[in-house]
Design a protein around this nucleic acid. Structure first.
Length: 557
RNA sequence: CUGCCCGUAGCUCAAUCGGAUAGAGCACCAGCCUUCUAAGCUGGGGGUUACAGGUUCGAUUCCUGUCGGGCAGGCCA
């Protein structure tokens, strides 16, 4: 429909251009929008305002001419000029009702697009260090990343979901020492406990399991504890495996799945870190200074150069990151999106700089990033401080158990990623209408209930006469249904899954209003079938939308 | 001190890549269940979109500055 109207406007603009000064109207970016106010029609364009400047004419006068030059269309009931020069289109009832047919035909594919054309896209998210259970911040990353993955799939991309484990480096040494101390009976209060050690009770659990010579099985590794408190290597392997196992359980509870788990340690053992360093040295963008090896990241937009190899010999964290991303590129991901906490935003410049320095044809803006801001957790009206090292903690699994998977996902994904989020546990766990996710699910359950009571064959709805759908709430609902594909498209373009959540709230609102204003199961058979077709289509869109969020669509509540 | 993100109703948040009278929910007030699920609906009050300028037909949106909050600025990740 949008394309159709754009075409009409294009014809009109062309005819207008012919008898004017001949400015380049061909390059006009014709914008059609859906007015918030139904009085302003079903579609609206600001074309006349855009033409005002080049044509040096009053926008309203241009709008009049454009409207007069519009070819007739069976889908357009009437056209009006309003405000400063808006051209408003009012669609014919037929055109509005057509969306029900589209939904019936497309089913669970309704709203999906082929934009990605099956191209490979990797989304890396969560990527928590195996130094503790997942907390609310990881939960936000998990919810946003998972929705993004679903969104991009719905837009035709072949998505790989990937989790990167930093299982090497200083923080793992720290973890190892913390567990080892516990094995030796040294607690966080003891003077010999590592100063920056991990103080949480879970460290004691790991130590206990280790001393009991348990075997842990994680996603792609398992390890049997030696039980020797002086064997640091054994403790390291065991602790990492143990926490990976815990994180697997966290993810499972949140119903998040990954296709690939990548390990930082594997980048070392496979020689990829070393070869990347080699390539960087050969690129000429490195230099030695103060017994360290530096990368000249200032040549790629950084404000200072960065150390690659420390004085004591080890590499800094961004070196394996560069190696990792080079590997992603070599695996054929022409598009990569990294979802991560904004507290790591300083790595972006460094990773991209390293990739540019390698000069292997990687585009400047590759990979893309979606950063989410901090989550503040409130409980009993007070902020719960999250500190992994201090051990005060709101784990994701606790949250899911308290609040429920659906509500937790919705709360964490329904807001713009780049603004801070307040997660009020008391509010979210209250199973009342304070919870927007129930509002949406309730709309779905209501429709299911009505359709069950109708009890008819859904096949007849495909040939139902839709012309009785003329009521105000019906027009509003159908209009909303036509917006869904645009929402799916825009949300993917802007990497903003929260747009889907907001849309669903609006759609549910339209349905509830309709439900209260009109009786669906009426005597008039034609009207009843038309309404069954409409609410059935609405249910389909609710399902499709909830599926993008990874939230269930219950038939009863 | 420098960079990035944010600042919208009392609270939590929207606002379709510059559009028409800035919208929801919660809270507050007043109504709607002998009829398809009241986890719902209808109406009401509540705003100088932090502040000051600028760009133009038009700014919550873009630019500059100020204030306030968050995060970074390690040879930690």
């Amino acid at each position: 429909m949008k394309a159709h109207l754009t075409e009409l406007l294009g014809v009109a603009a062309k005819s207008l251009n012919a008898d004017s000064t001949g400015t380049a109207a061909g390059e006009l970016n014709i914008q059609l929008e859906r007015p918030k106010n139904p009085d302003h029609g079903d579609f609206s364009t600001n074309l006349a305002m855009l033409l005002a400047k080049p044509l040096r004419q009053n926008p309203r006068a241009i709008a009049e001419k454009l409207a007069a030059a519009l070819p007739a269309s069976e889908f357009v009931a009437r056209v009006e000029i309003a405000g400063a020069g808006f051209i408003n289109f009012y669609l014919s009832p037929d055109a509005k009702q057509a969306v029900v047919r589209q939904i019936q035909q497309a089913g669970e594919q309704y709203g999906h697009h082929l934009t990605g054309a099956g191209r490979k896209l990797q989304i890396e998210f969560v990527s928590a260090n195996p130094t503790g259970p997942l907390h609310v911040g990881h939960g936000r990353g998990a919810a946003v990343g998972d929705c993004l993955a679903r969104l991009m799939s719905a837009n035709g991309w072949k998505v790989t979901r990937e989790f990167y484990y930093n299982d090497a480096g200083a923080q793992i040494d720290n973890l190892t020492k913390s567990v080892q101390s516990r094995c030796l009976g040294i607690g966080p209060d003891h003077p010999d406990f590592p100063e920056d050690g991990y103080r949480g009770e879970y460290i004691a659990d790991i130590a206990e399991a280790y001393m009991a010579k348990q075997t842990v099985i994680a996603d792609d590794m398992n390890y049997a504890a030696s039980g020797d408190p002086h064997n640091a290597e054994s403790i390291r392997h065991f602790a990492v495996a143990y926490l990976r196992h815990e994180q697997d359980l966290d993810l499972k509870a949140f119903q998040i799945r990954f296709d690939v788990f990548s390990l930082e340690s594997a980048l070392y053992t496979s020689g990829k870190v070393e070869s990347t360093v080699q390539a960087l040295v050969e690129s000429g963008h490195t230099y030695e200074q103060d017994d360290a090896l530096w990368l000249r990241t200032t040549g790629f937009g950084d404000d200072k150069d960065r150390v690659m190899r420390k004085r004591e010999g080890g590499y800094t964290y961004f070196v394996p990151d560069v190696a990792y991303h080079l590997d992603k590129w070599r695996r054929g991901f022409s598009r990569v999106i990294n979802e991560q906490g904004a507290d790591h935003h300083s790595t972006i410049t460094r990773v991209r700089a390293g990739l540019q320095a390698l000069d292997v044809g990687i585009p400047q803006g590759w990979p893309e990033y979606v950063l989410h801001q901090m989550v503040t957790v409130m409980r009993g009206g007070e902020e719960v401080k999250i500190s992994k090292r201090a051990g005060s903690y709101v784990t994701l699994r606790d949250l899911i158990e308290e609040v429920g998977c659906d509500a937790t996902r919705y709360f964490l994904a329904a807001r713009r990623a780049d603004s801070q989020l307040v997660f009020d546990i008391d509010l979210a766990r209250a199973q009342t209408n304070d919870n927007p996710v129930y509002y949406i699910q309730y709309a779905h359950a209501r429709i299911c209930s009505v359709l069950n009571q109708w009890g008819g064959n859904h096949h007849v709805l495909k040939s139902a006469d839709l012309s009785p759908l003329q009521a105000e709430h019906e027009a509003a609902l159908m209009q909303r249904l036509t917006e869904f594909p645009e929402v799916v498209h825009n949300a993917a373009e802007e990497l903003a899954p929260h747009m889907v959540a907001n849309y669903l709230k609006d759609l549910a609102s339209d349905l509830h209003s309709y439900y209260n204003a009109e009786q669906f199961l009426v005597e008039d058979e034609t009207l009843k079938l038309a309404r069954m077709a409409l609410i059935s289509a609405t249910r389909q869109v609710l399902r499709n939308g909830l599926d993008l969020l990874g939230v269930s669509a219950p038939e009863k509540m």
